[in-house]
Design a protein around this nucleic acid. Structure first.
Length: 556
RNA sequence: GCGCCGGUAGCUCAAUUGGCAGAGCAUUUGACUCUUAAUCAACAGGUUCCGGGUUCAAGUCCCGGCCGGCGCACCA
């Protein structure tokens, strides 16, 4: 057996899962399952639903144990609500399966696909390999027909299990004692199977009768339609969630699955499912761990149906895949946030520090584990930025150069040691992340905006002394066109105006005041603000022509 | 009502199977021709929420509280 990674929760869970697989005498690959409803943008919280089983499956594979990672798309779920940006007439689709609702943008074949596609791309970039199962396909093809009939046979038992956990009285208000004696009105007609109406396609249906002998199910729909289905022949509905989930455990022989806290509370789907899988489907419940929400910034939870939810694709636009993976290596029970604001710099610093410690051999066990799981999967390494420049620096450089490739290459060369980069590809993808972040997430008033036109209001009214300073600057602008030369030049101009030799150092108050005034003048004329990036860097990135056009425009 | 997570330096958080409580930012001091969240070095910073218990040893494990966050209760 190959050796896996040790020293973290993933290894512990993998131990448990491997033992369970052996105990259950599973032959063939160990199934780790994820389930996602593509009802809205699939956000960074949902990604944890994938990443936790992924890491476990990946650890099993590292140990040489075959593992499958299933992604069940809950795309046969009903459309529940429509986001504000969608045309209101989509309300008519509420109650229909997500795969039966058109994509509002018209881009993809249906509503579900619209959200699946970008998520798939993100998974691929993160090195997460899954086998997708569409619940729509599974239900419609009759794959679960036997399980549905089984559930209907045991519908009263299912009702009683559900009742056991109920704390809110719905039917008769007896006390909690005699659930099995419950004869409330719901028990007699309870159906764990919910048909989609064959007239209107929605699930506003009410099951009124079921005949065990013929498997004939009678329902009526709020649309006015009445109908009878034979469940052993017709596939036009699904099991309710709390039954559907354990059914899949049995159907797929799931050995590991993770769930959010909302599924893990008592009376919620997992605790209920644990009983149903055994009593109804004769299967085992999977090894299970719960995970907490992933937020952005301070928000502890993101709602999938709000516009503010940020997705893995959006995150991957600004965070390198390995750095993002490293976040999901944290204890699943602990919630964390992904920074889209300026804290993203800390995120990168933490990641760079971790990489440095591990590659220098000073990292501890846990750090080595996080590193190992972040930079590669059992099957392949993830792409890395070849030469590391701090994200903060890159963002700043992108900001002041406006992304100009020539300027970028030169300044990045200044930031790197030893051999200068031959191409910007050496700092990609991080450079692209920094650019995307600056352009997409930094508020306009925090960005450096170089004037596009010279300040014609200010230029003519400059004091002679200010004009002189600018002329001194422009006269020697290209004499030493590099960071050092420009540094000496900008600091030297005020010295020359004061009649001081340019070599003087030290802190003459008069000189300092003069320098400050000069800098402020330049900032006003170049970027229209009191301050800005370090002047030498700024000048370097603007280039002589641009500087001249802003400081010494051709008079007309 | 039930469940989960958290409470550690001024702030944000680390701390592996129990093993000398640690970083970043901020503060202070010094250096940098110095203006921007693109420097460097050093000093300082603690009753780990409270009360018990187990242990040679507890931030960590157990019991009981307090405070905060999130979730669940026949919706998927």
């Amino acid at each position: 057996m190959t050796k896996g990674v040790e020293g973290d929760w993933v290894a512990d869970v993998a131990d448990r899962v491997a033992e369970a697989a052996e105990r259950r005498q599973i032959i063939g690959p160990i199934v780790c399952a994820s389930g996602v409803s593509p009802s809205g943008p699939i956000h960074l919280g949902n990604l944890r639903e994938l990443m936790v089983p992924h890491l476990v499956a990946d650890e099993l594979r590292r140990r040489g144990l075959p593992a499958r990672h299933l992604l069940s798309w809950d795309d046969y779920d009903r459309l529940r609500k429509i986001p504000i940006e969608v045309p209101p007439d989509f309300a008519k689709h509420i109650g229909r399966p997500l795969t039966n609702v058109p994509d509002p943008t018209g881009e993809y074949e249906n509503w579900a696909e619209h959200f699946k596609v970008p998520f798939r791309v993100a998974l691929q970039r993160l090195g997460v390999e899954v086998e997708e199962v569409s619940q729509t396909d599974a239900y419609r093809s009759g794959a679960y027909r036997v399980q549905i009939l089984t559930a209907m046979q045991h519908r009263t038992a299912i009702y009683d299990i559900l009742t056991q956990f109920r704390t809110k009285n719905v039917g008769a208000d007896d006390d909690d004692q005699d659930e099995t004696e419950d004869t409330g009105p719901y028990r007699a007609t309870y159906s764990p199977y919910r048909p989609y109406c064959r007239a209107c396609g929605r699930d506003l249906t009410h099951v009124t009768a079921y005949d065990d002998a013929t498997t004939e199910l009678t329902y009526h729909c709020d649309c006015g339609y009445h109908d009878v289905l034979r469940l052993d022949a017709v596939d036009h509905g699904k099991l309710v969630w709390k039954v559907d989930w354990p059914m899949r455990w049995a159907f797929e022989d799931v050995v590991f699955e993770a769930g959010g806290v909302d599924h893990s509370s008592p009376g919620s789907s997992f605790t209920v499912g644990e009983q149903i899988v055994g009593k109804v489907f004769g299967g085992d419940s999977p090894e299970y761990i719960q995970y907490s929400f992933v937020g952005t910034d301070g928000a502890a939870k993101m709602s999938g149906s709000r516009g503010s939810a940020l997705t893995p694709s959006e995150a991957l636009g600004i965070v390198e895949p390995s750095a993002l993976r490293s976040l999901y290596c944290r204890e699943p029970r602990k919630s964390f946030t992904v920074a889209f604001d300026e804290k993203i710099c800390n995120l990168y610093e933490d990641w760079d520090r971790l990489v440095a410690r591990v590659t220098q051999g000073t990292g501890d066990r846990r750090e080595r584990a996080v590193y190992a799981r972040s930079v590669a999967t059992a099957s392949a390494p993830l792409p890395q930025t070849p030469r590391v420049v701090s994200f903060r620096s890159l963002a700043s450089v992108v900001d002041i150069t406006g992304g100009d490739p020539v300027q970028l290459l030169r300044i990045v060369g200044e930031l790197l040691d030893d051999p200068p980069p031959s191409s910007l590809d050496e700092v990609r993808p991080r450079l692209d992340c920094a650019a995307a972040w600056v352009n997409g997430y930094v508020p306009a008033d925090e960005r450096t905006q170089v004037r596009t036109e010279p300040d014609l209001a200010a230029l003519p009214s400059l004091y002679p002394r200010e004009l002189e300073a600018i002329n001194l600057l422009l006269a020697d602008l290209e004499t030493d066109w590099d960071l050092n030369g420009l540094t000496n030049l900008v600091y030297g101009v005020p010295k020359r105006q004061l009649g001081l030799p340019v070599e003087v150092k030290g802190r003459d108050p008069e000189l300092q005041a003069e320098q400050r005034a000069f800098f402020t003048l330049l900032y006003h004329l170049l970027v229209g603000r009191e301050t800005g990036p370090r002047l030498p860097t700024l000048l370097l990135s603007l280039g002589p022509d641009r500087i001249r056009s802003l400081l010494d425009p051709p008079r007309t």
